[in-house]
Structures are given as C-alpha cells and as structure tokens.
Design a protein around this nucleic acid. Structure first.
Length: 458
DNA sequence: ATGTCC
C-alpha cells in the first residue's frame, strides 16, 4: 500500500464490514499516484475492483484513472424535486403510483417516450441537462441546481462507441432496474430548519426522488474502455493486485479517452434524470392541477464519477492543486464557500441527497469544511447492500415484501416480483445509521428526513 | 448497474 486506508464506520457497521470490501480498499491504496488515503464511507461494500462507497484522489502527474473507481453505471445519481402538496392532498397514493409507473418507463431494456436523433444524442453527450431543457424537458433554474450544472466539461464524443450510442438513443428518459427507483416521499423531520429553508424544503411537504444513471450507454462505455485499459496496464507496466483495477495514467491517450467517454456518459445521465423529471412534473400538473413551476429541483448529485477538482493535499504548503477524485458510490459534499456550489446555497454548503432503501427514510444533508479537509469533499451515497440479489431472491418473495410494505403504508410497483424481492429493505443497511456516521464524523450534516409513501422500481 | 453471454 502506498497510502493508508481510512474508514468512516460505527461500531455496528464495522462488525458487518465485508472482508472483500476491506481487501478492495487496500488494493486501491496500491495504485500509482493515490493521494493521502484510500477512503471508505459507512455504506462501503464489495464492488467491481474498487469498493462501492469508496473515494480516492490521484495526482495529476503520477496518478491513474480507472473505470473500476467509477462503476459500470456512470453518473448513477439522485435528484429531488419538491411539490406544493402535503399528504392529505394525495388521498389515492396507489392511483398516483400506478400513473407514475405508466408514465416513467422502468425495467431492463425499457424504451423512452422521448426519441432522440443522433444529433440530439451528440448534444446531450456534450451539454447534459441543459440540452434536455433546451429540447423542452425542464424549466429555468433546473440546470444550476445540478452538480456541475448538469454537464461535466471534457466530454469527447469520438470515444463513445457506435454501440454505446445505439443503446443510448432509445433509453434517454428511462429509469432502469436494480436499485434505481422513483419515490414519492413526505418530509417528516427537520433537524436543521435554517438550512432546510435555504434549500427550499419544509415539514410535511411531498417530494419526489429520482435515482437512476446512464443506462445501457454508460454500461457500454465502461465495457469498451475496460478492454482498452486492461491492455494499457501491460503497456505502462502498472503492477496491479487485481485486474479489475484496470487503469491508465491520467494523461495517457487511453486514460484521456476513458475520461472523455465517461464525461459524455455522465452528461447523458443528467439529461436522463432531467427528462424523467419533466415526465413527473407533467403528470402532477395533470393529476393535481398544480403549476409545472411549483415543482422546483432542490438538487441533483452524482454518485459514480471521476472528476478534476481543486483540493488541499498532504503538502499544505503547496496549497490547493488539481487532482482527479474518483467517487464510486459516494457523493460530493463540498463545504460552504466553494465556488462550484450554486450561489443561493454557497454559504450553507452543497445539498447532499442520500436515498434510503425501499421502505426506509431518505435524507437531505449539507456538505462541510470537514469533508474538504478529510475526504476530498465527499460523503456516503446510500444505505449499502448487506445481502446479494441472488440470496435475497432465495429467502424472500416479492409478494411478501410488497405486502409487508403495504402494512406500513408504502405502495410499491415494479414490472416483476423478483425486482421487489432483490430490493427488500432487509437486504440493505439502515439508512439512518449510515447517515448518522457521516453526520457524527462531520463530513456532512443532516438537514431533513424523508418518509417513503410510494415507489416505482425497475 | 447491464439488450444480466455475440
């Protein structure tokens, strides 16, 4: 190991820490040019190469970039929109969830009601959420409420394969499957009323949370570039403890190609969440007679991405410098004052959105100065799985899980029963515990809690 | 996560 590994865990979460995730955190610490430490958030678990819930920053000259440090679902992320409604305004939650299920395409291989041309796709890959708004799927203010204003600089379209493009064309505006979801929630606790007011959320308010990523396009980009980078490992003589850590020097042709394609995929994911947001707003307008403008975006965060950022490193005398931060199942949590944060939130710190598992609370937090000092401005991303999909399917049935949730007043709708069993609340760590760890460690602070009312799953 | 094996 070139640097130490650092975990953020409670005693209880430490007891459940997987051996595999621990090994992976140590493996990441062997990579060339890694700075300070290999970081594990409290939702850490075993992933492809890097652990999910892992953060690692790399030196511009000595460091590498690795698809394993981003994940297959490039810019999987989450956004939250508010509504002017409260629980009593939605007497028929089941009807609303059915309507949402009919409106937002879910599941593997689902097709979007929006059909992008090849030219539209090129614009989406370059401009992200802004292009979706330009095409008519959004409103003034949406873009600046996204991390990176909904588009990463540095997208290079020539490194996105024809095959990736072909998969992306029909899928922009679809939810996907697995842990992706769209949930109707009510705010039930506000530990930090002042920041909640700044972020525009209030107790009792109905909100909609959207969790999805770059679909088949991002997956194809990851697959394509892993092949190239596996060869690059040999070419550059990089000694790896695990071939899943395939990587290349940041400024090598192979590393830059992956970065350009990853940035384009991240932009696609922002456009995807933007189009879904539009579909949801239109449905709420029709169903509840509210105005489209009454459903503003609170914020949109990326959970799976590598980015160039300015950070202090171990050599404090050198001041801030440009480093490449890999966040895989981790959220940027920039503290007060950072210029990257939209002006109206800059004094409060960046909004951080942490989804719970199906049936457990989600949270809105704020980034902190401590995060800037200790975690390259990063925090956790969610509950974190404790049981595999196959194991969940063996021990649970979708019908039983749905019935259990219904008893607790939570409506769930998915294309098939297996999708529900795989995502049962019991197969995840409790979101409350994960969020408490990052709050207590000071790497973000809890602002508001959201209770689930109804959810659609892929 | 993923047209869950071109």
């Amino acid at each position: 190991m070139r640097v130490p590994g650092t975990f953020f865990l409670s005693r209880r979460l430490a007891e459940g820490l997987e051996e595999g995730a621990l090994t992976q955190l140590a493996n990441v610490a062997t990579l060339p040019g890694i700075l300070r430490c290999s970081l594990g958030m409290p939702d850490i678990h075993w992933g492809y190469g890097f652990p999910i819930g892992g953060v690692a920053a790399f030196d511009e000259e000595e460091g590498v970039i690795s698809p394993g440090g981003v994940g297959f679902d490039i810019n999987c992320g989450v956004r939250m929109i508010t509504t002017p409604l409260t629980v009593t305004d939605i007497p028929d939650m089941k009807g609303l969830i059915e309507d949402l299920f009919a409106t937002v395409p879910t599941g593997v291989g689902s097709k979007s009601p929006v059909r992008l041309s090849q030219n539209d796709l090129s614009n989406v890959l370059t401009d992200g959420a802004a292009n979706a708004v330009e095409l008519g799927y959004g409103m003034e203010g949406d873009v600046r409420r996204c991390e990176e204003n909904g588009a990463m600089p540095g997208a290079e379209l020539e490194f996105v394969s024809k095959k990736a493009r072909a998969r992306g064309i029909p899928q922009c505006g679809t939810l996907g499957s697995g842990n992706h979801f769209l949930e109707v929630q009510a705010i039930d606790e506000i530990p930090d009323p002042a920041t909640a007011k700044t972020f525009g959320v209030a107790e009792g308010q109905i909100c909609v949370m959207i969790h999805c990523g770059s679909r088949g396009l991002g997956h194809q980009v990851c697959t394509d570039h892993l092949k190239v980078l596996e060869e690059a490992v040999k070419k550059y003589g990089i000694d790896l403890p695990d071939r899943q850590l395939a990587c290349a020097p940041l400024h090598s042709p192979e590393g830059e190609a992956y970065f350009g394609a990853m940035a384009a995929s991240a932009n696609y994911a922002w456009a995807n969440r933007q189009i879904i947001t539009h579909l949801v707003r239109e449905l709420f307008v029709k169903r509840f007679g509210i105005a489209y403008e009454e459903m503003p975006l609170v914020y949109d965060v990326a959970h799976n991405v590598a980015k160039w950022e300015e950070h202090e490193t171990a050599d404090a005398a050198a001041g801030r410098r440009r480093v490449c931060v890999h966040r895989k199942g981790a959220t940027r949590a920039f503290g007060p004052g950072r210029s990257e944060i939209v002006q109206e939130f800059r004094d409060a710190g960046q909004p951080v959105i942490i989804p719970g598992s199906m049936g457990t609370s989600s949270y809105l937090l704020a980034g902190t100065t401590t995060a800037m000092e200790r975690t390259f401005g990063s925090t956790c991303h969610g509950a974190g799985r404790v049981q595999s999909r196959s194991s969940a399917k063996r021990s649970l049935t979708g019908a039983a899980v749905a019935e259990d949730l219904a008893k607790r007043g939570i409506i769930v709708r998915a294309p098939n029963a297996a999708a529900i069993a795989e995502e049962a609340p019991d197969v995840y760590k409790p979101s409350s515990e994960v969020v408490q760890v990052v709050h207590d460690a000071g790497i973000s602070r809890i602002v508001a809690r959201f209770r689930p009312l109804g959810v659609i799953k892929g």
